[in-house]
Design a protein around this nucleic acid. Structure first.
Lengths: 188, 188
DNA sequence: GCAATCAGGACCGCGATGGTCCTATTAGCT
DNA sequence: AGCTAATAGGACCATCGCGGTCCTGATTGC
């Protein structure tokens, strides 16, 4: 069902969290405020750093900081950084030459329009949009988001202090519950 | 990387194949012409039948037939039939009540805009479009498909006889190669 | 009645995902 | 200079979903 990886969700949460402060933040610190297990936060941050979304400062007093404002980071970038290039089929992702040289790909490109469309959709939504969506629905626009969503008026001010929790992706319980009341059903 | 399931690719191939004939077709027959292993074809067809995309006729001389023309089947329907409802997060897919009743989902809806956008994109592309895309690139429009792709002038006539092969989804080698080198094409 | 065909499961192996941990390396602070 | 806090960059392992196969019915044409 096209589900995206849990790490990507974490990444969004972490990035939003990073945007709340100007200086660098350590991964234990972020882990504490987000509720995501620390090793995982560290992993995500490393990945994001490799993807050029955050900058790292090593050593004591080190940490991570956001490189670009949320409004300039499309979800596509986050997904690409965490999950690799967005591609539904291997064909699209692999170099084109390979496919054709083997002559076994008369169908190459069949999924291209689909890929293109999805990529486009993901490029149009920024983290600021997602952050906006995270405020209680009472404050949200009643209409479903129809057109291409760009950096509209972000409600950044509204949500400053509450802890940012990742949304449960895939039914599976999250190991160290970032979300309330011991959801660790598997452990018992 | 948002990859969709291999079964979905098979489904598209099978559906396109079904569209080439008016009467019912058996799953062994389709397996032969597409090169997809027979048990898998059967599984896909059963799923598609459950999803209301194809109709089945049981008993001897039975088989499957397409219910709607390709141009009226958006990819979203195929994905939904094979992979379940299109939902990136569990939140969106689960009934809303559950999430809120537990009070552990202040972030609910953060991925909603993304979901919405993707769903919209997938609803705009029909199987006819994908079929069109499957003709050799020489015949394809040079420009990348920019805008929303709807049922444009499908080149259905152009590709009538060549065997339909699934595109390799996910790097992994397909167990019984449906593609090339010894194409299990109908002939033998 | 027989044979062909779909229906609807159960079943299993493989691979990717996720989560953890360990060992450098870097940089501030005393 | 040395200690400590922090990231870098791996290796490692368990789990789960997916892909694929097979088996036992139910149905229907001949």
């Amino acid at each position: 069902m096209l589900r995206l990886s849990k790490l990507t969700d974490y990444a969004v949460v972490v990035l939003v969290r990073l945007s709340r402060e100007t200086g660098v933040q350590t991964s234990p610190g972020i882990a504490a405020t987000t509720g995501i297990p620390e090793p995982t936060v560290a992993k995500v941050l490393k990945t994001l750093a490799a993807g050029g979304l955050v900058a790292s400062q090593r050593g004591a007093r080190g940490g991570y900081r956001l490189l670009r404002p949320l409004a300039t980071i499309p979800v596509a970038d986050v997904i690409a950084a965490v999950d690799g290039p967005i591609a539904l089929t291997a064909c699209v992702e692999a170099s084109v030459v390979e496919c054709e040289s083997q002559g076994l790909c008369p169908m190459r490109g069949r999924w291209d329009p689909v890929n293109e469309a999805i990529q486009q959709a993901l490029a149009a939504i920024t983290l600021a949009d997602m952050q906006e969506a995270s405020i209680p629905r009472a404050f949200r626009l009643p209409a479903r988001t129809e057109g291409p969503i760009s950096q509209g008026p972000t409600a950044q001010g509204l949500i400053t202090q509450e802890p940012i929790t990742p949304s449960p992706i895939t039914q599976g319980p999250i190991t160290q519950g970032p979300v309330a009341q011991r959801p660790i059903s598997a452990a018992e």
